[in-house]
Structures are given as structure tokens and as C-alpha cells.
């Protein structure tokens, strides 16, 4: 299908769409009475659950901090708490909507540019989150073991199976995710470059 064929099909389709009665006066009435809730720039429930989980984890570690005796585990606990505070902040920062442009006056290319910049920022922050999550995985295990009064070395197969399995799984997951994010970033960069050439 070439552009000319597309145009013919589009015109035929448009004629039929125009005959359709999609909007009713009642529907528009509801819109104008603000019964409708705009969903732009809203943060979803899953993000709130993630944030609460991180903060609940941090609170748990703070409460149980005194149970940790050794300095090295105390230090790891502080790092873990910091990570649990920082991770949701980064997520929130990356999810923060595009509030800087006016939908009503901005030109389409401007909006795309903002959207692309936002998308780039989002994926760059996601990559940072990925590294920090990996760090969290490393720090949280000895901290929890210390809180529960367990000697890491005494946990069966801790060094031989549990740690290597976690590392392999996370490294594989991170590699795939990192590659996926990088591919998206590359595409976004290309689209931005194309926009900037106009």
C-alpha cells in the first residue's frame, strides 16, 4: 500500500467514521462537569506499593539495627537503609510526568522532544536503579543474617549455591534488561537527533 492508496482508504474510512454517533450530549456534559478524572501525570498503584515496600524494609532495618553487633554488618545495614531510601526516590523521579509543557499551546514536535527527553531520563535512571538493586541484593543478605543471629558461614550452601545462584540470576536479568534499555535509548537518541535537525 503506497501513500496515495493510503490516502484513498483513509478518506473512505473518514466518511464512515463521521457518520458514526460516538459522543452523546450526556457524555460531554459529564466531561464539562469535571466528573472525569484526568489520568495524565498520575503515579500508579504499583509504584506506590514498591515505594511502601522499600520504606517498610528500611524501617524494619532501623528498628532491628541494635541487634547487629559487628561493625562491618552495621555498615552494610546503613548502606542497605540508604539504598532502600534512594531507590524509590529515583523511581519517583523517573516517573514524574511531563508537566513543563502546555498541551494546549505547544507544537507537536516540541511535545515529542520533551517526551523523548523524558524517556531518555527515565531509562537512564532505570539503569542506575538496576545497579543499585544489584548492590542491595549483595548488602541485604549478610545484614538479614546478622539480624536473625545467623552466621553466614553456618547457613547451608550459602556460599556454594545461594550466593552464586542469586548472582547468576541477577547478572543474567541485569544483562538482558540493560541491553533492552540501551536499545531503547539508542532509538530515542536517533529520534531526538532527527527532531533537532528540523
Amino acid at each position: 500500500m503506497e501513500l496515495e492508496d493510503m490516502q484513498n482508504t483513509w478518506q473512505e474510512m473518514s466518511k464512515k467514521i463521521d457518520k458514526q454517533e460516538i459522543l452523546t450530549n450526556q457524555f460531554i456534559e459529564k466531561m464539562t462537569h469535571k466528573k472525569y478524572k484526568s489520568k495524565l501525570n498520575k503515579i500508579g498503584n504499583s509504584e506506590y506499593v514498591g515505594i511502601l515496600t522499600c520504606y517498610a524494609g528500611a524501617a524494619y532495618l532501623i528498628i532491628n539495627f541494635r541487634k547487629i553487633d559487628e561493625f562491618i554488618f552495621q555498615l552494610l545495614c546503613i548502606i542497605t537503609i540508604l539504598l532502600l531510601f534512594v531507590l524509590p526516590i529515583i523511581s519517583l523521579k523517573s516517573l514524574k510526568g511531563l508537566k513543563t509543557l502546555s498541551i494546549h499551546t505547544a507544537q507537536y514536535s516540541e511535545t515529542i522532544r520533551k517526551y523523548m527527553q523524558h524517556k531518555m531520563k527515565f531509562y537512564k535512571l532505570q539503569r542506575i536503579n538496576l545497579i543499585l538493586a544489584f548492590l542491595l541484593l549483595i548488602t541485604i543478605l549478610p545484614v538479614l543474617a546478622s539480624i536473625y543471629g545467623k552466621e553466614i558461614n553456618s547457613i547451608t550452601n550459602f556460599w556454594t549455591i545461594i550466593v552464586p545462584a542469586c548472582l547468576v540470576f541477577f547478572a543474567g536479568f541485569s544483562f538482558i534488561t540493560w541491553r533492552y534499555y540501551s536499545k531503547i535509548l539508542k532509538n530515542v537518541e536517533n529520534e531526538l537527533a532527527e527532531l533537532n535537525n528540523n
Binding site: K39, L40, N41, G44, L98, I103, A106, Y108, T111, Y115
Partner: peptide
């Protein structure tokens, strides 16, 4: 069209 772009994220 601007709304459509903003909507992509959310």
C-alpha cells in the same frame, strides 16, 4: 495529538 503523546507515558 499532544494529549496522545503525554498519554503514552501513563
Amino acid at each position: 495529538m499532544n494529549t496522545a503523546i503525554y498519554n503514552l507515558k501513563s
